[in-house]
Amino acid sequence: MTTQKETLHLIDRLAAEARTVRPLASPVLRTEIWLALSLPFVAMMVILYSPRADLLEKLSQTRFLIEEGAALATAIMAALAAFAQVVPGSNRRVIWLAALPAGLWLATLGIGCLADWMRAGAAGLRVTNDIGCLGKIALIGSLPALAMVWMLRRGAPLAPRGTLFLAILAAAALGNFGLRLFHSQDAGLMVLIWQAGSVLLLAAIAGLCGPRFLCWQHRKA
């Protein structure tokens, strides 16, 4: 049976542990730090896999630029939202920050599917096995994901599922951003299923595992 006396003892114990603590940096600054850690890794992976031969040509295509920009913006906004999630008292609506670029990203891919269908009919919507995308996205997103989880564990695990979903969405979207720079797959439906699908699948799995990685017991006093 817990009594007020025990609470006073607890307070004494906690007060005895008082020491200077460095307040957590703002979510914006933490997002910048995360990007500074992650982008060089993504660049390194693109170089290791060799950039696609038609990269210069692709970089002059508006649709490709919008798609890549939206994927990168999804990563940045999801990371910002994840970092805000672990700060008590922050605005909970930040979780919707990633929705706009993610919607734009999916819309671009949808337009790609439509364009393929108008250009080549049913043949333009042919789906073949490209499961390798999942592994490559996971590989490129691995270091950003690890860095993100490590940084998030310094915060308060208020909504572990949502936070980890956003975190892995950020890492996987960054992985997909890198993948598009060396993987020559431009068929709209293939990109939608195997790339955007992989990103969402990884984020959803991570979200389900959220409480295992982010819980009060993991926090160090």
Binding site: T7, L10, I11, L14, E17, V21, R22, P23, L24, V86, V87, P88, R154, G155, A156, W216, R219, K220, A221
Partner: peptide, 10 residues
């Protein structure tokens, strides 16, 4: 109180 203590850096 324990959670406050653990999260005081936030």
């Amino acid at each position: 109180l324990i959670s406050l203590h653990l999260a005081r850096n936030t």
